[in-house]
Each structure stands twice: as structure tokens, then as C-alpha cells.
Design a protein around this nucleic acid. Sequence first.
DNA 1: CGGACGTTGGAGAGCGCTCTCCAAGCATGC
DNA 2: GCATGCTTGGAGAGCGCTCTCCAACGTCCG
Lengths: 343, 343
Amino acid sequence: MPASPTLEDVARAAGVSRATVSRVINGIRNVDPAIQETVRQAIAATGYVPNRAARSLVTRRTGSIALVVSGAGEESEENPFHSQVFADPFFGRVASGVVGFLRPRGIHPTLMFAETDETRAQAIAYLRQGNADGAILVSTEARDPLPRLMVEASLPAVLFARPPEPIPISYVDLAHRTGAKLAADHLIARGRRRVATIAGPLDVPAAQDRLSGFRDAMAAHGHPYIPCAEGDFTLASGEAAMERLMAEHPGIDGVFIANDLMAQGALPVLRNHGRRVPEDVAVVGFDDSSAATASRPLLTTIRHPVEDMAAEMTRLLLAYVDDPDRAVTSVIFEPSLVVRDSA
Amino acid sequence: MPASPTLEDVARAAGVSRATVSRVINGIRNVDPAIQETVRQAIAATGYVPNRAARSLVTRRTGSIALVVSGAGEESEENPFHSQVFADPFFGRVASGVVGFLRPRGIHPTLMFAETDETRAQAIAYLRQGNADGAILVSTEARDPLPRLMVEASLPAVLFARPPEPIPISYVDLAHRTGAKLAADHLIARGRRRVATIAGPLDVPAAQDRLSGFRDAMAAHGHPYIPCAEGDFTLASGEAAMERLMAEHPGIDGVFIANDLMAQGALPVLRNHGRRVPEDVAVVGFDDSSAATASRPLLTTIRHPVEDMAAEMTRLLLAYVDDPDRAVTSVIFEPSLVVRDSA
DNA sequence: CGGACGTTGGAGAGCGCTCTCCAAGCATGC
DNA sequence: GCATGCTTGGAGAGCGCTCTCCAACGTCCG
């Protein structure tokens, strides 16, 4: 790399002082328009690019943020944690929302993974080193210690989904119970009366809410007993859960499945058992992820505006970075019903 | 954020000079073991974390690298470029490979997108600012100008897949023609004689190679004419291509599909036309991506070791950063056949 | 026992930038 | 005509770190 021109070089070329060039670049205070123009030409002529390290050394800001994925860490040599994360369309949607918000602002996120105590400590140290001004946190397991660690280190952070125990940290979440109610109402409206559900892992709050919300709504419709099979949000677990449901309750005519990926796994199982979807069994998924449109028939599902939520998290985080004393807030998004072919 | 302790603070606490503490931290030169121990205790006591900006200001190294996704840019408000990228499991595999290699080394990649001339210029400027020491480049379109721009700016970079025109840049690629031959040999071995193919977008070299490699191999088996429908590597395009194939060549008994995602789209089409897979029509995909195991039946496919290739790219890049005068190299990986249920 | 040499720690000069002073220049008001 | 206040540019002090010198202190051999 050839030696880059510095502020000094630009100042010399423009015949002004370093300070003036700096003022022009940062648009601070009044600089005579004629001089401004001279400086701008000098910048173009020298091909000057400000050095980030020098700048952030004095401003104590990096102008970048971290996207931290923190999780359970049942990781193996051949199937490391990050590969599981990338396989799930959920993470891609979060990343997309974050990037969408950050890009127009010229900032690029740093991708981090933390799934063991050691890597969590590393992540905190990395942030404290000043590699990023704050972090977007996405936990894949319920009781992830990272949010608390962030708070303790007083690092600006925003969480996806409400933490199981209340801690003073901002988060963004979905009204899962409302979503589950939309699914229940739709199944009832479609005339279904023998309805079952496939739940997500019940240690995660979102899965609990979707199950209890669905059961409560069905009870309100006069159906107090709803059979349930538990999965873990993966395609294979949806397949297995559907098999169990078919074995134990062959007469069902509708099923609410706590995420689209499990629903995608469940659909072929229904077909293999000779059930037509939606004629014999209506299926409602959750999330409106890419799995919903990759399924055949197309999944009727509950829209989870993950991208918008991720963008909102990013907005909150930047506001925090700007003003660290800002009050902690949470934003709850409303789900909606997306009717396609499966119900 | 409370004022962080500096080297000076640690030095004072340990009763030595800044230089000595720096030497202990960077493990440079001989420092008396007793003093080393004292310094280490002082670091622990003060909770010292080195400031990255200050360090990289003097070393002219950031210790981080960028993962740049560069592409076509048919982007719309509701479906921005990055969302398309994240929807494809391919990118996730690259990211996973990069992260897998980088993480044990304590370095975290910065995620960047560039799909217009403007954002490409921004990306170059960002790198020149010293935000990253080099870049892993993944292009989603054939004639992406970014690799050339990187070379011109003499920024260390490694490319995924051979560029259409030769430029002096290191890259990692797959022997696509060999993979296509494996598919052809397998279909023949399974007794298929009326074989068709669904190709990828023919402006990308990999898609060309897979098609020509397949045709050449089939010709060698005495089948010079192979019907072909072109897709664009998306699930929906695979579905449409399969429909066309069924309409024009209803008698086929085998099909080689240039990636798993299109194959995932094609399978339900075959079923809707009353064809059993693999009994009536054998299907071979390509990539061995998550789509291969999400399909029913499970896809027989050609393994594309994307994660290993991404790790190799990262290894090459770090070697480059270490020694910028290193000669440009390319590494070609060999594919293998993965037999599952579809053929 | 003195000089050559190896080892180890300290001093201090920056890296490139921002930002606080300060001074100069000028308009304004009494 | 002079004090006052405002605008505008420059000087220079760091930000926290690395790394080159250099000095101090042994050690060893002739």
C-alpha cells in the first residue's frame, strides 16, 4: 500500500492549516466558502482518505457496531455453532434488517459469535477495546448470560426478544400471543374443530407465548383441549412432531405450527399420510420466513416482521451510542395473518 | 463508559515504564520473568484492555478483515440486495467458513455489501481508511468490477470463484466440470438413458462449466443430445424450468440440476406430474447445501465444500496481509458425489 | 582487572487526527 | 474614535500506543 496522503498534505496543497481542512471535512463551524472549495479540490487532488484509527483515537468513537450472535454452544467439530446459525433463515433476516438500516449511514457491522464463557469474555473484551460502539444482540438460547455481561460492562446494546429475567437493557420483540390468536381465529373461521399444535422449545419465551396464546384463543372458541407436540424450531423436528401427532391424533383437521421451518418439515409428512393440505388438514405456520414460500402448498402463516424489528434495534442502538444516558426502552411489534394456500 | 485504564496506568501500578508493559503484552524481546509477572498482575488489577485505535494508528494494521458481497444490484425498495443474498444458503456457508477460520484467531469480519458503482467506491474508501487489512470477495454476478478495483487500489483480497477475465488476484474455486461428470456417471450407472438438465444462469462461469461438463460427460457415454432448461439458481426458477422440461420432454428418466435450491423447487413439480423420484425420474443436484437435506426425498448431489473453500480463502488472505508481496495463487477444490435418495 | 559484548529497561518521538484555545480582522454602537 | 462582540483561521496539545534509540548493568575472556 503506497503511503496515504494525510491531513497535513491536504493542508499544504490547499495553503491552509490542518485545522481548517478538518473543519471542512467534518462540516463544523463556518469556513469561508471560497476556502472550502479550495480544500475540497485539494482533497480530490491528493486522493485523501481520513485515517479511521487516528480519528477514533481522539473521538473515542469507532463509527461501527457489532452484530453478536450468542447461543447455546452445543457445538461440535463438524457442525460448529455458526454453521447452525447461518442455516436458519431467521438470522439472515436479522442481518438483512441491520444492514438495511446501517448501509445508508455508511456503517458496516462486525459479525461476532459467542457461545461459550470464553468466547463471551472475548466478545466483551473486543468491544471494550473500542472495536465497535455498541452491539446488536441475538440470543439463540433463553438464558444467555451475555446481555447481563453487556449491561455490567456498560456497553450500549439492544436485544432481540425479551430476556427471561428482567435486566435493564433495551429490546425489541413481537406480540407472540397476538400472533397465535390470529392463527387460532383463522383456523376456526376455516371451520376447523379438531386442531392440534406443534410448539417450539418451551424454554424459550417466544415458544411459550405462541403455545399459551394459541391455547387461550382456542379455549375462548370453546376448545379447551389442544394436543401439542414439541419441536425445536428445526425442519427435522417439525417432521418428527408431525409424525407423533398423526400417530396419536389421526383425526385432526388443522394444525398450528410455531415456526415455518417446522411446518415445512410437517407438510410432506401429512402428504405421506394421505392428507391433502388444506382440504383435509389446514396448516398455519409462524414467521413468514423464506420457508413459507419454499413450501408446497404455500404456507398460510403469521407475519413476524424480523427485518423491521432488526432495523428498529439498530436505530435504538445508534440513539444509545449518541446518548448513553438514554432511558432503556422496549418496542413490541404487532404480527399479522398472511393467508396463502395451506389454510 | 468509565475511563479505561491506559498503558500508563498499568506501568505506574507495576512500577515500570510504558515500554516494558507494551513488551510484555506483545511478547517481544526478553523481559525478566519476575517483572513480567508483576506486569501481568498489574494488568489484571487495573482491568486494562489495549486500545485498538491507538495500536493500529502506529502499526498501520487493524487486525480485522472485511467480507464483501458484491453483486448485480437489481435491488428494489421492498427486496434489497442484501435480503436476496441472505436468503441463499450459499452465502451462509461462505460466512460460516470464514468465521470458522477467523474465530480461533480472535478476529471478527466486517460485513459489507456493494452492488452499485457508488457503494463499490464506498467499500474501497472504507478499506483504504484502514477499517480492515484486506477483503474476502464474493461476487454474485459474473462481471463484477470490484475485484479489479481492489487490485488497482492494491488492497489485499481473495476471490470466491475464478473471475471471467484474468486479473492478478488470488481465488479459490471448484472443479465444476468434474462435479458435472460425477453426476453424469451416476445417472448412467443408475441406468438412466433419457436425461435432461436444468442449468444455472449462463453468464456465470460456474453455471457454464456445470452445463458443458455434464454435456461432455454424457456425450462420452453416447448421449450427445441433452435437453436443457435454464434457471437462475433460485427455487422458483427451478420449479419453472422443471415445468418446461416436463412439457417438452415428458419421457425423461433423469435430470441433473445445477444447484440444490432449484432441485428443491423441481421435486414437487415432478410429483405433481405423477412421477416418482427416484423410481420414474432420478434427480441429481449440486452443492450439497441445506436445500439437499430439506428436500423430500433427500437429494443425491455433488458436494461443493464451500465452507472449506471459504476457510482457505481466509487463510490466503491472512498470508497476503502478512506479506503483501506474496505471489498470486489459486486453489481448486475437488467435488465428490453424495448419494442420498433422489438418484 | 579492564574492555568487549549481550541483556534488559527507560525515554521519547511520533502515528494522523480533533478540538480548544487564541489572535486577527472586521462590523457595530455609543 | 474606541470599546465591544462576532466571525474566521492557526497553533498546538494531546488521544494511547509502538518502537527505535540509548543507558545501565552484568558477564566473560584475555
